[in-house]
């Protein structure tokens, strides 16, 4: 009997994921209610997701959280890039063009300022830990931009796999920190209107972090933040291995 149940769940991984996530959402919103909605249900749901990812990663020793456990492999499809981006696009439905126009300039400024700051911070941290070559600093700086920019930069510049792994880790720490911290810091940081959300998206840049962080804060703000964030990784991939690397090379030599 148990075998048949297991086979049933394994035959339809995506459906199993729908059901599991449905149960997680229900539990999370019930918990949220118990806190008088001071902690939003979606924030709890995302946190449960991260805990499951930790458990999955510990059990399997692989890289994709709970989805590396065969029974939950549907999570990788449900939470993968394709459906995520599709759902992000759908949130744009109902967005006001006027709001976007107002947020445009500030969002673009945030994008540029933040890519520079993240690269500098990452490179400086790398330097402090003894990674003093321009290639290593640019790669770890790229990882601090997002966990995609790091490996793209490292591959372009020929960094070692150890440094690339570090750059990915820096990006993943950033992305998860954004997911967890956003609902708590939103008020203090003034993140309560579309313009601020667009700036926030440009500053944080990690699409996964921004989309989860805003979902847990105020779902109405998601499209504004996601819109600027989707330009961040592309922009980072463009400037960090080129301008960023050349600047570091000029300053520190190879």
């Amino acid at each position: 009997m148990l075998d048949i149940l297991y086979t049933t769940l394994n035959k339809v991984p995506l459906i199993t994921a729908f059901v599991t996530v449905g149960i997680i959402m229900w539990a999370a919103y019930a918990l949220g209610k118990m806190t008088n909605n001071r902690i939003h249900g979606s924030a709890i749901a995302i946190l449960i997701g991260l805990i499951l990812a930790y458990i999955g990663g510990t059990i399997t020793g692989e890289k994709k959280g709970i989805s590396d456990i065969t029974l939950f492999s549907g999570f990788a499809l449900m939470g993968g890039g394709m459906l995520r981006d599709f759902a992000i696009v759908s949130t744009a439905f109902g967005v006001k063009l006027e709001e976007l126009k107002k947020a445009g300039l500030a969002g673009a400024v945030a994008l540029v300022v933040s890519v520079v700051i993240a690269t500098v911070l990452g490179a400086a941290t790398a330097y402090a830990f003894g990674y003093t070559s321009a290639v290593d600093m640019a790669t770890i700086g790229g990882g601090t931009v997002t966990f995609i920019v790091g490996p793209v930069t490292g591959a372009a510049l020929g960094a070692s796999s150890e440094v690339i792994a570090l750059s990915v880790a820096a990006g993943v720490v950033k992305s998860i920190a954004v997911m967890i911290l956003t609902p708590f810091l939103a008020k203090v940081a003034g993140l309560d209107n579309p313009a601020a959300a667009a700036v926030y998206g440009g500053l944080m840049g990690t699409t996964s972090g921004v989309s989860a962080g805003l979902a847990a804060t105020d779902p109405k703000l998601v499209p504004y933040g996601a819109l600027t964030a989707t330009f961040y990784t592309g922009f980072g991939c463009l400037v960090v291995p080129s301008v960023g690397y050349m600047a570091l090379l000029a300053l520190f030599g190879n």
Binding site: I48, L166, V173
Partner: peptide
Amino acid sequence: YIPIVVAMAASQNVVAAFNAGALAFIAG
């Protein structure tokens, strides 16, 4: 959207982020 984001969160390499050491944490 939110359920998909929950599934995405559950598929992250959280273990690596936890174990990467001080450099990744400070930079991130």
